[in-house]
Design a protein around this nucleic acid. Structure first.
Lengths: 118, 118
DNA sequence: TCCATATTTCGAGAAATATAGAAATATAGC
DNA sequence: GCTATATTTCTATATTTCTCGAAATATGGA
């Protein structure tokens, strides 16, 4: 289970337009991931600035990397993502379950709105 | 639908141990909310520091307030909360639906783990 | 009106974060 | 070994954020 410290680290990492864009790009890219250079190209950021962003997201546990030849491939950590979402939602229930139901439904609906994933 | 700018504002507001604690407290408190003084007491923060935190959460749209006598009652904005979760999850589906299913399930499971909310 | 309670605003100093240029490191191919 | 490509690290500066004490504002009751 995620600690508050981890949650703050993850939220801090995502609380930045550039890094949020990178993370969402990697979420879209799925397990295949994306080379740092491709990310820089897609987002229009300088290589060193992007590297700093990737470093912060990595240390927050939201993404991880593997080397493939000259490129370093980054990909989202979906377990960490679900861990963060779980942390943000888990207290929603403790007070009045009636409130949390719609929130969970909305989140789920939003998730599956794009295409027909169960 | 939430813009990236709004998402960054919300994430920034939550990316702080004190503010995250306040927000979760208000999520637990439900629609009844909680007076600023009670929040300060519960979290052990100075009134002015707490006021700054509440102000930031308010401007991020995550909470709202109403005055009751001498107290100002704060409560979580559950629509904003679900909006943020939706925003964070919506791109999960666009690439490979197979990945996003478990994430959504986990989030939902986490939500409902505490008690029996559908 | 005067006083007590509740909360917010102001102002300043300290700490953390963001960005970019330049240099350094790692890998691949010749 | 040499060169080109890919990415990271170093260093400095600009900016933002955090926290607190002190003062100000708002409400309720005597």
């Amino acid at each position: 289970m995620m600690e508050q410290t981890d949650a703050v680290a993850a939220l801090s990492a995502l609380a930045h337009a550039g890094r949020l864009e990178v993370f969402r790009l990697l979420v879209k890219a799925g397990h295949a991931g994306m080379a740092a250079g491709k990310i820089a190209e897609a987002t229009g950021t300088l290589p060193n600035t992007l590297s700093a962003s990737l470093n912060i997201l990595t240390h927050a546990g939201l993404i991880h990397s593997r080397r493939e030849g000259r490129s370093v491939i980054y990909s989202a950590d979906f377990e960490a993502m679900s861990g963060l979402l779980t942390f943000l939602m888990e207290d929603c229930c403790s007070g009045e379950p009636a409130i949390c139901g719609p929130v969970a439904d909305l989140a789920r609906a939003g998730t599956c709105a794009t295409e027909g994933c169960a």
